[in-house]
């Protein structure tokens, strides 16, 4: 009995040493790490995971982690050139491609994300309803006084077509409503000519802009930017995680359903959903999924 206890203790201590004082469970080498791909927005998460699970510095793993952007990542996964991808949700086109190639995708949310609206910190308006936002961007509400603010016009900035945030805006907010024409400004194009471009958000009392929470919350220089409540709920890590904040989305891990049980990719997915993995995601600036 005592021998067994000693042996058990020996194994525990040895395990602790080998796993680095009990901080790590799953571990990989750069060679055994699954082939990953993904969207630009999940690069920091992907790099942080690889660094944690290989025990290397983030600068050391960075040259080994390549995210080819969302669509190419899906194609690479479907074509078996990647084992797991970290992306936004699949488009109709990507689902159709998978179906055409006889691949079923497993899409698992790994971190929460929200679509947030912002204005100048001194704008007295605390929040907008979801419907008010849609009416503003449809061009029906045009003055802050109509939503409890000062009598100044609302300049409702948009993002360039095909940018991630504009896609999110159309899919998560406007849905079936056509947004009004975006404010534009002249910018220098090639050969020194001037072209009309979607005007960038200007943080003054007229401005209303949008972005994903991840990009706004810790952005340098955003101290004069205020996030707006939507339907009375302020976007923060808790309200986004719990789903109280109404304009919520997520970033996902996607695998082929034929990915073997206990494969490195499945272990990686399991790990990111673990408490340790979720804490790493939060430390990297994302919002936990649970």
């Amino acid at each position: 009995m005592r021998k067994t206890a000693i042996l058990l203790l020996f194994v525990m201590i040895l395990t602790s040493i080998l796993t680095g004082c009990g901080e790590k469970g799953l571990s990989f080498t750069l060679e055994s790490y699954p082939r990953v791909d993904g969207s630009t927005v999940t690069i920091p998460l992907s790099e942080a995971m690889a660094a944690r699970l290989t025990g290397l510095d983030i600068e050391e793993v960075r040259p080994y982690i390549l995210h080819n952007k969302t669509h190419e990542a899906y194609v690479n996964l479907i074509d078996n050139n990647a084992d797991i991808i970290f992306v936004t949700s699949p488009s109709e086109e990507e689902l159709a491609l998978a179906e055409e190639k006889g691949i079923t995708l497993e899409v698992v949310p790994i971190v929460s994300e929200a679509f947030v609206f912002l204005t100048h910190s001194e704008n007295p308006v605390k929040g907008l309803s979801y419907d008010e936002i849609r009416q503003i961007y449809a061009g029906k509400i045009t003055n802050w006084s109509e939503v409890g603010g000062p009598d100044v016009p609302i300049i409702a900035y948009q993002r360039p077509i095909n940018s991630g945030s504009q896609t999110g805006f159309l899919d998560l907010v406007m849905k079936d409503i056509e947004p009004m024409a975006a404010p534009t400004e002249k910018v220098i194009a090639g050969m020194g000519g001037l072209i009309d471009a979607i005007a960038a958000y200007k943080n003054d009392e007229s401005g209303l802009g949008y972005s994903y929470y991840y990009f706004v919350v810790d952005m340098w220089g955003n101290e004069a930017v205020k996030l707006l409540e939507v339907d009375g709920i302020y976007p923060d890590k808790k309200t986004i995680r719990t789903g109280q904040y109404p304009i919520k989305t997520a970033y996902y891990a996607v695998l082929r359903s034929d990915e073997p049980k206990n494969s490195p990719a499945r272990k990686l997915l399991e790990w990111i959903l673990s408490e340790e993995g979720q804490q790493l995601a939060e430390d990297t600036g994302y919002v936990k999924i649970k």
Binding site: S39, T40, V41, I43, P44, K69, T70, H71, T88, R159, P160, N162, S163, G164, S165, T167, G168, A197, I198, A200, Y201, K202, S211, Y212, Y214, F215, V216, V217, D218, M219, W220, G221, T284, G285
Partner: peptide, 21 residues
């Protein structure tokens, strides 16, 4: 911002942000 910043998720500028600056 002047380069129409926050080109996140999948941006197209030469100056793409992958996380908050």
């Amino acid at each position: 911002n002047s380069l129409k910043g926050f080109h996140h998720v999948d941006g197209f500028s030469y100056y793409d942000l992958v996380s908050p600056f």
